[in-house]
């Protein structure tokens, strides 16, 4: 039963989702929207699980005084403060929640994203080597696109932006479409084998697909 019930539910829902795509009737679309609502409801309840997990993980760390436990205190205090600010005082303009969002979350998020610039530079320096013909081609293309994306590229060669644009719209899109076709087929095949119960390893021990070495 532990295996069969999830398999039957997966099969029925999977087939319905595939069929409703072709059925504009209220029966198909209404059912589809209902399932989307269910998914949102399940997601909302799962958030309770997530919050429970957050409290358990950090609470345990604080209780056992594990290394870096003060950070866990910061995490839990921040959580409580945001919840209280949001629920008690609302989250409109000029509220405490809005203030925290603007002055703490915005700079923190922007800082994390900005790290990308540093990491791009260090990764490029460390690994971008013209080891082979293909690698050289990749390297030259990257340099052209980088120059084409900034005004200085046009100062060096007046057609640099057009060359860069061409690289982005022709060879890049061609390669990308090749990858996407493979991805789409792979995703469809994965979905098919899950719907038909061929793939069961996500069901754990009850349906594990065994191991080969």
């Amino acid at each position: 039963m532990k295996l069969q019930v999830p398999l039957v539910i997966t099969f029925l829902v999977g087939v319905f989702m595939a069929v409703q795509f072709f059925v504009p009737h209220e029966v198909g679309q209404g059912g589809y929207e209902m399932l989307l609502k269910w998914a949102r409801l399940v997601g909302a309840f799962a958030l309770v699980l997530g919050i429970g997990s957050l409290w358990r993980t950090h609470g345990d760390k604080i209780r056992r005084r594990r290394p870096d436990w003060p950070y866990s205190v910061v995490a839990l205090v921040s959580f409580v403060v945001m919840v209280v600010l949001g629920i008690v005082y609302g989250h409109g303009e000029h509220t405490g929640f809005d203030w925290v969002f603007r002055h703490i979350q915005v700079p923190l998020d922007a800082t994390m994203f900005a790290l990308l610039a540093f990491f791009v530079a260090s990764a490029a320096f460390r690994t971008f080597r013209a080891r082979s013909v293909e690698a050289t081609l990749l390297l030259v293309t990257a340099l052209v696109v980088m120059l084409g994306r900034v005004p200085i590229g046009e100062l060096l060669y007046h057609r640099m932006p057009q060359v860069s644009e061409w690289i982005m719209t022709v060879p890049t899109v061609a390669g990308k479409r090749g990858i996407l076709l493979g991805v789409a087929l792979g995703a469809a095949a994965t979905a098919l084998r899950i719907i038909l119960g061929i793939e069961r390893s996500h069901l754990g021990g009850a349906g594990g697909s065994g191991e080969g070495e």
Partner: peptide, 24 residues
């Protein structure tokens, strides 16, 4: 931001070129 982006791109290009010279 374009001036900052231009110089940052040039810095990365410089690093890549120096890295390759060192590698060879």
């Amino acid at each position: 931001g374009m001036s900052a982006q231009s110089i940052a791109h040039l810095w990365i290009i410089f690093l890549v070129i120096v890295g390759n010279i060192a590698y060879f």
